[in-house]
Design a protein around this nucleic acid. Sequence first.
DNA 1: TATTGTTATACTCTATAACTATA
DNA 2: TATAGTTATAGAGTATAACAATA
Lengths: 146, 146
Amino acid sequence: MNMQTSQTRSRAGLAAALRVSISRLSRRMRAEGGHSLSATQIGALGAVARHDALTPGELAAHEKVQPPSMTRTIARLEADGLLTRSPHPTDRRQVVLSLTAAGDKLLKEERRRKEAWLAQRLAELTPEEQTILRQAAPILERLSHG
Amino acid sequence: MNMQTSQTRSRAGLAAALRVSISRLSRRMRAEGGHSLSATQIGALGAVARHDALTPGELAAHEKVQPPSMTRTIARLEADGLLTRSPHPTDRRQVVLSLTAAGDKLLKEERRRKEAWLAQRLAELTPEEQTILRQAAPILERLSHG
DNA sequence: TATTGTTATACTCTATAACTATA
DNA sequence: TATAGTTATAGAGTATAACAATA
């Protein structure tokens, strides 16, 4: 039994612990986010907010769904007054999506709720624990990119 | 501007960073878990594995869905040979759920895949970064309970 | 011809309401 | 009467296949 084996075992344990804690915390945050829109709708709206002037095809690719699925989501969001569809300036096949003021407001409110819940939980931690999470956040972020 | 305000701001920033990194990592892990079963089915099967001899009502409450929704999930898992329904020993209205050997095997395989992916990502971190995550895991776990 | 987006259709997951069997 | 579970039915989200409009 060598050092590598020991390290691997340790990493497997860490992976197991992280898998459980990340899954649970994510599920809990989702539950705390208000329920005015579904995860699908929030995801699409958020993507439009981040990359203004997306087309439906780009949005479907970004959210990893097929174009017909996104057509439906867009129709719903448009009917609810949260985004608008306008003609593409040069290509008449395409459509350009933008957030309405109501869409922008709703999105910010949704984020605010989740973060308020999380901030409240963080306030109950010791300063040392908060420091650990402050160091962990960018590492977790990088893990998802790998 | 006092100390409290500064701390609160800092916590809000940490909350925002954690929300994003937790959400992304959770989404990515889900995508890495093989696709033999849906999240719903894995969740139900996992709950039966953890609390053997659950009834459908208990399982629905645990997974936070309505009983008819769980009836359907159970029917599917039973048809796929992953769990069994047996009579309750004393109350003939109730039903007792247990994992089959195939269900147990599939569940372990699903977890193994997710953890293998995560362990591989962890292996790419420095020892210092791994130490930070090792300290962070139990804190994240507690956050979801609060 | 190729691309963009939509419509048609089907499957899964979820819900509420109504029903059956048992307590 | 109350409880456990199921069946009936409907809405949301997803997919593939087929179509229309435009490039």
